[in-house]
């Protein structure tokens, strides 16, 4: 007997072997877990491993502090086995004119999404940027094993009105998606945030929608997937 609900979920498997709706495909590790608020979930993506590729931004000898985009590039490259440091990426960006240089070094190191695409490509990971992305688009990219940098509003992400801009103003890497074990509904995403230095932070779907999708849905996505 293979009882299924209306969405076609198989319910006869052991609890520790999550099944996914037939319309949810993925090529990355997944496991059953519990969200910070206690809800059951299926995590798609190797969040534990990819969380290692996060540290507080500003870890470079140039004094550059606005390096969330550069640190996100570093994180993506390390996801693909390219061992680089923030210093390596900042130095490369300075040399190639791929980040801002202000009189005040604390304000230096900013990147456009095109700069991020160029840096990733320079290190052998071709990528492109997209706009108007949706949560399902993002979930799909992650399920395929692509590296993803998001441009979002950190005021929403950090629940800090002083930094709320109503527009994208910060870069993070997305490393996993959480879906409801039975319905497949997106419950949230896991991100590496170098602004706070918090690895594998869970961001619920409503917050991600406001912080990222409603701010233009801008993302840099690698052409390659992790398992290639």
């Amino acid at each position: 007997m293979n009882p299924e609900n209306a969405l076609g979920w198989s319910r006869d498997a052991p609890d520790d072997v999550p099944h996914l709706p037939p319309d949810v495909s993925f090529d990355v590790p997944h496991h059953r877990d519990v969200l910070p608020d206690g809800r059951e979930t299926v995590v798609i993506g190797d969040v534990e491993t990819l969380s290692d590729y996060c540290h507080p931004q500003g870890d470079n000898p140039f004094g550059f502090r606005q390096t969330c985009g550069l640190c996100s590039c570093e994180g993506i490259l390390r996801q693909f086995g390219i061992e680089v440091t923030e210093t390596d990426i900042v130095a490369h960006a300075i040399e190639r004119g791929l980040c801002t240089l202000e009189d005040d070094p604390r304000m230096s190191g900013r990147t456009t999404v095109l700069d991020q695409v160029r840096i990733l490509s320079d290190f052998g990971i071709p990528a492109s940027y997209e706009t108007s992305g949706s949560l399902e688009d993002l979930a799909s990219q992650l399920a395929q094993g692509r590296g993803v940098i998001l441009a979002l509003d950190c005021g929403v992400l950090w629940d800090n009105a002083d930094f709320y801009n109503g527009q994208a103003n910060h870069a993070v890497t997305a490393i996993g998606v959480a879906r409801h074990p039975e319905t497949g509904e997106i419950q949230g995403f896991y991100v590496n945030d170098t602004g706070t230095g918090e690895p594998g932070k869970f961001v619920d779907a409503d917050t991600m929608k406001e912080a990222w999708q409603d701010m233009g849905g801008i993302q840099v996505v690698t052409d390659r997937v992790h398992r290639e």
Binding site: T112, V113, G216
Partner: peptide, 23 residues
């Protein structure tokens, strides 16, 4: 209009993500 201003292709391509963008 504000959304078109903030998400214009020139803004996305030329303006650094981390900048403060005015209303």
């Amino acid at each position: 209009a504000a959304k078109e201003f903030a998400e214009h292709a020139v803004r996305v391509a030329e303006v650094q993500v981390e900048h403060f963008i005015s209303q």
